[in-house]
Design a protein around this nucleic acid. Structure first.
Lengths: 250, 250
DNA sequence: CGAAATTTTGAACCGTTTCAACGGACGTGG
DNA sequence: CCACGTCCGTTGAAACGGTTCAAAATTTCG
């Protein structure tokens, strides 16, 4: 993921924010080591194609149907990807966090709306420049392919959630996933931070905001979690939660 | 996608079954032109790493958790990919048809079960050989990346279906998709052929077999379809069906 | 042709949604 | 710094769509 992060960093004279690549085998770490495969002059050339952009809470970043002329790399904040049916039913198909790519999978046009859940910073590339990078550096391409595979697996897990899990199970799965994310970015691993609104969570889990709220209340009454304000949840018994969620069934 | 198809064909002295590549921009055609990027001697080397395999109806091809040592390319028949929760709730995460890859996205272990819905023939590669191919031919890698992007978009559409559509809408979307497939392989475009059991369809659509049956009955009573036996459905009014399904919302 | 499996149909049940109202947090402006 | 208004989240009650359980009809295959 951190392709543009790295480029940005390169522009800023190679600061310590350049993250090391991790082994692709697990795809756990989405950091892409561009440095290892891109020569400095190319890096510079590409960095020039990248522009820092910002978006305030709730602002659209891309909209479904727009020609997919840009690829973004999120550097700060949280983005919500969603699709909306003509009668306004909405499904959130994913949340993007720092390091994630936006718009890469798109071919002609974006197939979803992307909006800022929190204040967002991102690195914007012209699509053509981005594709040139791929063409020039097969190792980049491989890395992206690996990341795409990972996304496919996540999507499949989400299908299990949407197709077969109860509301409480969905909520449990979601909390575990969010706590994992907190942990991965160096935060308290027992705390799930939920920067998005209940409506965003419900549209991600295929529920209503009311059901999300009720499911949380249930988990609370069972002693599995404690709500610390509306936007963070302490996991009191992650093991029990995992059992409940059958989170990706071990 | 017909990578192994092509390889197999190469072994059989380059028959007419070598499909031409189509432009990646749309990713509509999943045929991969290997011939254009792979030299003959390499093709032969790789063909030697591929083995034809068969599986009878209902037979497992790969199982979740198994080390992902092989990549398959389906050459005939239909494969069902599914995930099962510990209490036997099952979600079908996809069906594979001739030309599709199986096991490519897997990293260490397969993350799903793959079973033969009909009699299946496939081309089996050692994973390492397959990765060598990718390493040797960046154009292959690009093509796969494009295919993966396409799969991600399909997965997102399926999330909309599972998270937000009614039973009837799900059924409509499914029928349209299956009819499209029939059309693409040169069959009657107004006919959706459903080789899989109702239970497979229901596990794909996040429903029960009973609901699938009832939804079909409703569509029938509304004059949108006619059942021609249990495994093919004639679409009498595809436009109305598309409106109903909001199939990928135009 | 006949047995087993699959599909369809029927009726009661249940989890989630819907509709409605209340409570609390946040931000704005005084 | 506090008061007020708005938005968001929570809680309650009724309704609905889909599930579950049961049985009949059809298809499939030996």
């Amino acid at each position: 993921m951190a392709v543009s992060t790295v480029l940005t960093a390169a522009r800023a004279a190679r600061g310590p924010s350049v993250r090391a690549a991790e082994p692709c085998a697990t795809c756990e770490a989405r950091a892409v080591s561009v440095c290892s495969v891109v020569r400095d002059q190319d890096l510079e050339r590409l960095a020039q194609a990248a522009v820092q952009v910002r978006a305030g809470r709730g602002r659209a970043i891309v909209q479904r149907g727009e020609p997919a002329e840009a690829v973004f790399n999120i550097t700060a904040g949280v983005v919500r990807l969603s699709k909306t049916l003509p009668d306004d039913r909405r499904q959130v198909v994913g949340f993007l966090f720092p390091g994630d790519f936006l718009g890469f999978a798109a071919h002609e046009a974006y197939s979803y709306d992307a909006e800022a859940v929190t204040e967002v910073r991102a690195c914007r590339f012209q699509r053509n420049s981005f594709l040139e990078l791929l063409a020039a550096f097969p190792a980049m391409e491989r890395r992206l392919l690996c990341m795409a595979s990972h996304d496919i697996q996540e999507a499949q897990d989400q299908m299990v959630l949407l197709g077969r899990k109860s509301a409480k199970e969905r909520m449990g799965s979601f909390l575990l996933k969010m706590a994992e994310r907190t942990a991965k970015t160096g935060g308290d691993p027992g705390l799930a931070q939920l920067p998005m609104a209940r409506a965003d969570i419900s549209d991600y889990l295929g529920l209503t905001p009311e059901t999300v709220s009720r499911s949380l209340a249930q988990l609370k009454s069972e002693g599995l979690v404690r709500l610390e304000g509306a936007h963070s949840v302490r996991l009191l018994d992650p093991a029990a939660l995992a059992r409940l969620a059958e989170a990706e069934f071990a």
